[in-house]
Design a protein around this nucleic acid. Structure first.
Lengths: 250, 250
DNA sequence: CGGTTACTTGATCGAGCTCAATTAGTGTGG
DNA sequence: CCACACTAATTGAGCTCGATCAAGTAACCG
């Protein structure tokens, strides 16, 4: 199944096949039988690709569906009354977006594509109906919500307690782990977001991020070229986040 | 069963009556019929009171139940490897605790009582079974999770973008609103947490909180006596959080 | 190319932290 | 009922981390 559905594809034209999707490990509840998976597949739509800079949804939009990222990436953010933005997360393939909208029936954050991105749309009423029939799916949904809550708590810790250095190290390690889970390299990757977004997300200034990248590079922790990152010493990077001392190899 | 039931309270002795509970507005799904409410009641246990400083659960404990606060209050927090704490929330009557534990099957934060507190225990497997039968309850649960996610996003904004002044003003207004929803005064209340916890939650030093209380009092925004707070000017407090200028009344 | 945006680097500044001292509660046991 | 110890809160003085301001450079794109 191609990741890049061209717009000539009618929304329903392409049969969704969750069972064959490379993301099923992340996206699918583990304990569904074949019949249950087909039920789920019938509820899922593949949308046309979202271009870089295009919104998947905006804060205030009526909530109708959840979205699973198939390829590409998003950032989600919210705006203050004064108009400045706080990024609340970055979403990689296999991530689910939109849970924030369930409570009020309209989205509380905006989601914008950082690159050309494809998603599966899961209309919520259909998903909810399936949840009554498939206990494994119900648990899966609650787990995803639960994980998002825990992740957010970790971000509170990052923003509330960590130094600039610790924040960037934490971010890189977390991204590294997420990429690894998805089958990519844990040590070589490209950031899909500009420095500006990274700084915003970590509660820092762009200049601070830039200086930290330079410093980490001088310390042989990273090799950085623009958006391209090579993690040269995972252990010492880890040590930064835990205040543990870790000898620099000669 | 539970190891922490006080002997005078037989767990099932006290019949739970959600329908008569003063918190039902907050705690119960609105669209349940009488039969569904009794089903829910049969799943709920009232636990013995939790004393100030006592844990309801700790990070790492196996997750078995959600808890609804009946009276009193909790703080939830997580610890870094180095042992310093980040408070992730304060919980008032009607609040639900424990969602963070669903994903991994063990709690990721600890919950400790800030005063003598009573809770209803909702064993998760029973709750989940009811969710398959009662669509309204299922939606209610997802809504609560969704709200927690949105609330956490707002905390990210607070920690990432706001000044000390804005953080405290936001906190007081948010608390004021929550108390109002629960039928208490929106302008006169007692904080159940020490300055230390407040500072920790808001990502500030205790001294900063103290100085801000003094300053807000000089500006006739608040009247503060230890933990007792009187909000003298809700409008101007609101104005602080939105950078809006608001004339100080003569 | 030329214009725009992304990123880096340097110099300076300030909000809020840390350190330190004081005061005011809050129990606890004689 | 009061001394004592202990914790909670306030207030002051000085410092620091990261923000802001200001250039300059490098990539990207029509």
């Amino acid at each position: 199944m191609s990741a890049h559905i061209h717009r000539i594809f009618d929304r329903k034209a392409l049969k969704v096949s969750c069972s064959n999707c490379t993301l099923s490990e992340l996206c699918l509840p583990h304990n569904l039988d074949q019949r249950e998976i087909s039920q789920l597949e019938s509820a899922v739509d593949i949308k046309r690709p979202i271009q870089k800079g295009e919104h998947l949804y905006s804060a205030g939009d009526p909530f109708e569906s959840l979205f699973a990222v198939r390829s590409g990436s998003f950032k989600t953010y919210l705006l203050t009354p004064e108009g400045d933005e706080q990024i609340t997360g970055f979403n990689l393939p296999g991530d689910l977006l939109g849970l924030d909208g369930i409570d009020t029936g309209s989205h509380t954050v905006s989601a914008i594509a950082l690159e050309t991105t494809t998603v599966c749309e899961l209309p919520y009423t259909q998903l909810d109906t399936l949840c009554s029939e498939i206990p494994g799916l119900r648990l899966h949904m609650m787990r995803i919500a639960s994980r998002e809550i825990s992740d957010d708590h970790n971000m509170l810790l990052l923003l509330g307690k960590m130094t600039a250095e610790e924040r960037l190290a934490s971010f890189l390690l977390s991204l590294s782990n997420r990429l690894k889970k998805r089958g990519y390299s844990a040590t070589d990757f490209n950031l899909t977001m500009p420095r500006h977004d990274l700084a915003n997300y970590l509660g820092l200034a762009v200049e601070t991020i830039s200086r930290l990248f330079s410093r980490f590079q001088e310390d042989d922790l990273l090799r950085v070229n623009r958006r391209n990152i090579h993690i040269a010493d995972l252990q010492r990077l880890q040590a930064i986040t835990t205040h543990t001392s870790c000898p620099k190899p000669a």
